[in-house]
């Protein structure tokens, strides 16, 4: 009975959605966003349109996005209890993983660095590099490598906030210099974008990794439970 009701509701919704998409698709082209972006590319400081949109034309979105990520990480960490990151129970006892790690970790760091650097001229950039870096961190964690910087102390807090802080600093400095908020000074766009991207990569990786670490440990030990094992 409930299934039928939900199915009918979803079918009606799907028909409305498809109809709307069809109607919008049939309308004559209104906007000229790609042309606008292509015209402004020369001033953006980078050669890849998506990176230019992310870190120059619409950098306000990116600034708020890293803010959202930091808030999510803070909420996740505050839920967690991190008794000991070196708890042997949390490690995978897999010899294959240990053996592969020595080969994969340097390679993955290299890939992350390359993705970050490539973002200026071709697909790549801070988000992809941050994701790869976070994946590397997850692999390190599963293999039980020492990662003391993930304890909720000063280093973790600085690492989480660094990307947002640097981004905001650049924005405020350029605003204080007489430009608009988040407008890069003439000729400085490329180095500033690269600087912001490096710290964004680090912060995104830290956020994702700390959320991964916070998830399994939080249930580890309530004080009331027996610790007999």
């Amino acid at each position: 009975m409930r299934l039928a009701a939900v199915l009918v509701l979803c079918a009606v919704f799907a028909m409305a959605l498809v109809g709307t998409v069809w109607q919008i698709a049939g309308q004559p082209v209104g906007g000229t966003l790609p042309e606008t972006v292509a015209d402004a590319m020369a001033d953006s400081g980078v050669d890849h349109p998506v990176t230019a949109v992310l870190l120059n034309f619409r950098s306000y979105d990116t600034l708020l996005e890293i803010g959202v990520l930091v808030i999510a990480a803070i909420a996740g960490i505050s839920m967690a209890r991190l008794p000991s990151l070196e708890d042997p129970e949390l490690r995978t006892h897999d010899s294959l993983l240990h053996a592969l790690q020595r080969w994969f970790l340097p390679l993955m760091w290299l890939v992350a660095g390359y993705l970050l650097w490539a973002g200026a001229v071709q697909p790549g950039g801070a988000f992809q590099a941050g994701a790869v870096l976070a994946g590397t961190g997850v692999l390190m964690r599963l293999g039980g490598m020492p990662m003391n910087f993930l304890q909720p102390r000063l280093l973790l807090r600085v690492g989480l906030a660094l990307g947002f802080a640097v981004f905001l600093l650049v924005a405020v400095v350029s605003a204080a210099g007489g430009d608009a908020f988040l407008a890069y000074p003439e000729g400085m766009a490329k180095p500033l974008i690269l600087l912001i991207e490096i710290f964004l990569t680090l912060s995104i990786a830290m956020v994702l990794l700390s959320l991964f670490v916070a998830a399994p440990v939080n249930d580890a030990r309530e004080p009331a439970e027996g610790e007999s094992e």
């Binding site: 992809q128 994701a131 991964f212 998830a215 399994p216």
Partner: peptide
């Protein structure tokens, strides 16, 4: 290709690890 890169790294890699970890937790019980 930008989104494809991010989706491959995040959607397949990180989300998979997080979700499988959670499933293992639910199996073990509270």
């Amino acid at each position: 290709p930008d989104i494809a890169l991010a989706e491959a790294a995040i959607g397949a890699g990180l989300t998979g690890v997080l979700l499988l970890d959670a499933v293992a937790h639910f199996r073990r019980g509270p």
